[in-house]
Design a protein around this nucleic acid. Structure first.
Lengths: 212, 212, 212, 212
DNA sequence: GCCTAACCGAGACGGTACGTCCGGTCTTTTT
DNA sequence: AAAAAGACCGGACGTACCGTCTCGGTTAGGC
């Protein structure tokens, strides 16, 4: 997912734009991204240096800068890696009630996973706003998957008549993920079950006209 | 509002703890803070350097570090400056309905104010997460005053029986400011009347059992 | 004159020690050496990079490193190229006197030759001392041919009784070439007829007991 | 002796060109130059890095680049340091004969001094020709002081009638130092008593019409 | 009115990360 | 198997910036 493509010949009419020479090692792309997340988790964002990433990936800095234009771009891509597989969209819970479904989304990670995630989130927080795309990447990782899940669960609840079909699912599905992300990225408060319960029972369900 | 007090004599029993020597020029405090916001607005947070601030304030770096312990602390204080006068707590609107009150809080700034605010918010976003206190400062500027206003308006609505006394005002008063702050700081989308209307009419009022 | 021979089969008993596959293109040897001198003359030694040489020779770096073990070795060979044909050993001048012979050795080059030679000398100077063999190569090009010529002319003068047979021809034959080389390589002063005349008339001939 | 002067105001008519701010620490100049020679002696010219020099001098790289524009300039100045006190001009030997005087100039250094000098010469050789000024610096260190000494001794010999007043002292005084420097810097042969004896007895003295 | 200490602007300082460049090696495809 | 192309590792380069320190000068008290 590196941002820099291989250099393009200037004249698109060139007869032989086919690549020659050694091919880029795309395994190295992943190795560098993984190293970036490792370093992020170990020393935090303020301690993240390109030399450290290069050393950890057993790569030269040149190989990194051939792929990404700057540290920011590298980190953006590394974080975007996290998006995959962090909420299991295809297998959403089905407990019969919207409340049960929403609560079930929050399944604590293993201690090991939790620690790595916490560290990366903390580092991510340190990077939010570095530039626009980095913030967007953070949003894509932290808010979007969860918002999609909420959206799906709410639509299912509407389909089975649990909530009114006229409810603004598009808006309401983003409230909890957004507030949670703000807590995580800006306030760095724990994102715990108590907070989740409060948001669902005092905000979301009442807004749908349901009682906890 | 500099964080660093003048140096204290080590022995409190010293006969002359009273200050001698030239007094600190407190006009310079404000000049530096103003310069910080100027630079922030002009070159963004990534371009903000202490040398630039010092030059802009016609001050030496020493004068800055005599007042603040680090770049972060300076920026925090500069941002905290913004808190004052951005929502007029003592004179909250009173339209007779919660909806009217909440909507009335949002009074568009002048074009000039709006532009400076947007630039500083953009820069502020670039700093969120730099460290915890900086994030807190951002929160204090962007979320807290508005959350307090919402809280007051909701309590008044409860007092006059418009909404149930059992509603979780503490939680609900923070929803709109938090989501708005996330939009501003992370997503950097416009914070406009449409968004506000959607949040109030589809989330807050329904959660109170009110119809728009 | 590449230093690296083609790889030898490890087991001499192998049934096919004769080379198979594509033959090494020896025209490329010369092309690379020529390119090296070109680049040396154009950008100087500090700007000489292997990529530049490869590009100029329309060769890959691999082809260069298959022939020479390092940049130094390549440059040494390129410079050694110059040795040939720069003093015409077999046809030494014969004017009848040692002074006439020595002076006749110095025949100014054409303007074009002179310019290229000056540039390469300047670049060569930039390389002297890079490593021992490089310095030796420079010496072989700049000093040795001339020292040999002086030696031959002095021996002839001794043979015909112009100078004493006891004179230290071995030492004296190296004085002018060495001082000239120092001027060229280190001081980069012009090597002109005036300098040569001074050296011969005030140093060499008096040392042989001759008067100019 | 750093090459970079403090920045000059553009308008020479400025009323206050007097320096303000912290003064450059000129002790640091010497510390850096000394560190450069140390590193040169320890790891050789190829191993000389600015970080190493900075670390050895307990200086930041910024402080070095504030004084010298590049590594080359630094090394030039460091080498120029060596000029001072390496031949004792004011106290030239006086043995009564030119031969004795010239031979007496060559007084072996202590083993420790000799080793440091050899290492620095070796490094210096690696640098000769890097650029013109560097070569000149090398010349100033290696040739000039010795040439001056020879010049003085020869003039004294002429004054007392040992040699002819018409001898070209200007040219002859430079022969031995130049040939010696070429041996040292380019050929890297030992500069020993045998070589010196050969040069004096077979070249210089005969050129003056003297017999060893 | 003078002494003294803390202030001030300016800018040098140590340290550290950045992004670039290049030497020598290795890999892919073509000849 | 050699060739051109070019990716790869490693490591030095010169720049920029942070937070500290030093310089000469200014501005108050306290005497």
């Amino acid at each position: 997912m590196p941002r820099k493509p291989p250099p393009q010949p200037k004249a698109p009419a060139a007869p032989e734009p086919v690549s020659v020479g050694r091919k880029r090692d795309h395994l190295l792309d992943a190795k560098i991204l993984e190293a970036t997340l490792d370093v992020l988790a170990e020393v935090g964002a303020s301690g993240l240096t390109m030399d450290l990433v290069a050393a950890r990936a057993s790569a030269g800095k040149g190989a990194i800068y051939r792929r990404w234009g700057s540290k920011s771009e590298l980190v953006i891509d590394a974080i975007a890696q996290l998006k995959r597989g962090h909420i299991d969209l295809p297998n959403l819970p089905d407990t019969g009630t919207l409340r049960g479904d929403l609560m079930a989304l929050f399944k604590p990670l293993s201690k090991r996973e939790r620690e790595r995630w916490a560290k990366i989130m903390s580092a991510l927080a340190s990077l939010v706003g570095q530039d626009q795309t980095l913030s967007d990447a953070a949003n894509d990782v932290v808010v979007e998957p969860w918002a999609e899940a909420h959206h799906a669960l709410m639509q299912r609840a509407a389909a089975r008549g649990e909530i009114a079909a006229t409810a603004d699912v598009a808006t309401l599905s983003r409230v909890v993920p957004t507030v949670a992300a703000y807590r995580t990225l800006v306030l760095r408060k724990d994102f715990d079950a108590d907070f989740l319960t409060a948001m669902i029972d005092r905000v979301i369900l009442p807004a749908f006209g349901l009682k906890p």
